[in-house]
Amino acid sequence: MSRKLFVLMIIGLLLLTGCTMPVQTGSINAAGEWEPDRSIEVIAPSAAGGGWDTTARMLARTIDEENLSDQGFGVVNKPGGGGAVGWAYIHKRNDPHNLFISSPPIHFVKQNGQSPYGYDDFTPIANLIADYGAFAVRDDARWDTLGELFEEMKESPENITVVGNSSPGSMDHMQFIMFADAAGVDITKIRYVSDQEGGAMTGVLNGSIDVISTGVLDAAEQARAGKMKVLGITAPERLKGDEFLETLPTGREQGIDAEFIVWRGIFGPPDMTEEQLTYYEDIIKETSESEAFADIRNRYGWDERFMDSEEFKDFLDEQSVEIEALLKELGFITE
């Protein structure tokens, strides 16, 4: 009996592999507006708990609670390859009911050759929030400004080590490179150590590493306690809203012409119609302007930075060019 069972099942398998979940395109109503056919999947190309996942969940939650859409927004995790697995999935399905959250790593992962798809393979819908990086040293370190640090790095780059949470060629590394490059340091000689298991801050506190390149909030907390000093942040101008954060100097005011915005925005599949784009753009704009979302921004320490599709795209183009040039110089991109 078992043999018959197998034959039957293998036939079943062959039949089934041919079909997948159907891609739906929605419809246009009388007013010329696009209407989705089913609930929207917001994909976080990472596991539960990270930055993309949190943003996605907060976005979906606000939209549902404030009734900003007549369709439900649900979050689906597609982790893997630093986002590459999720991007490949969305690109392949090309379904206007799939959106995803992204941030600067989409540049790095693509340009480092770890994903066939980059930001320009998708439709940027809108940017939602911004975050910034910071460079900090131990409280008793010999540098007080970014200028002093970079001056020493110009003379003897081999004496100074930099640590970050991300792998080389990705965010923490490249935001430091960007500033060092603007200050005239030989960026190929910078010693960058990657610590993805939570040891980065420890390394700086115990003196085995000199500088940490990380997010503003991480560094600020140690600085507030007097254990570290923040030499500079990557925001274009000083942060507002918190007494202590206001005291952190930007790179620009120290004469270093660089900025790095850790944006988080929403993308759609490659081929979207004008109507679909407008539909989503409106929802995200309303979310961004809602009080509920302002409250969430405050909780997480995110900055409001809404950009519509066009503005977002221009911004991404610009950031991409800048990053590409630096990655080339460091040898991550080889022709």
């Binding site: 893997g80 390859g81 590459a84 490949a88 480092n112 792998s167 080389p168 060629g169 990657s194």
Partner: peptide, 14 residues
């Protein structure tokens, strides 16, 4: 983690 090189992945994103 230290160089960003992909090792023994046989070209698979997974």
């Amino acid at each position: 983690a230290q160089t960003g090189t992909s090792r023994f992945t046989f070209g698979s994103v997974n």
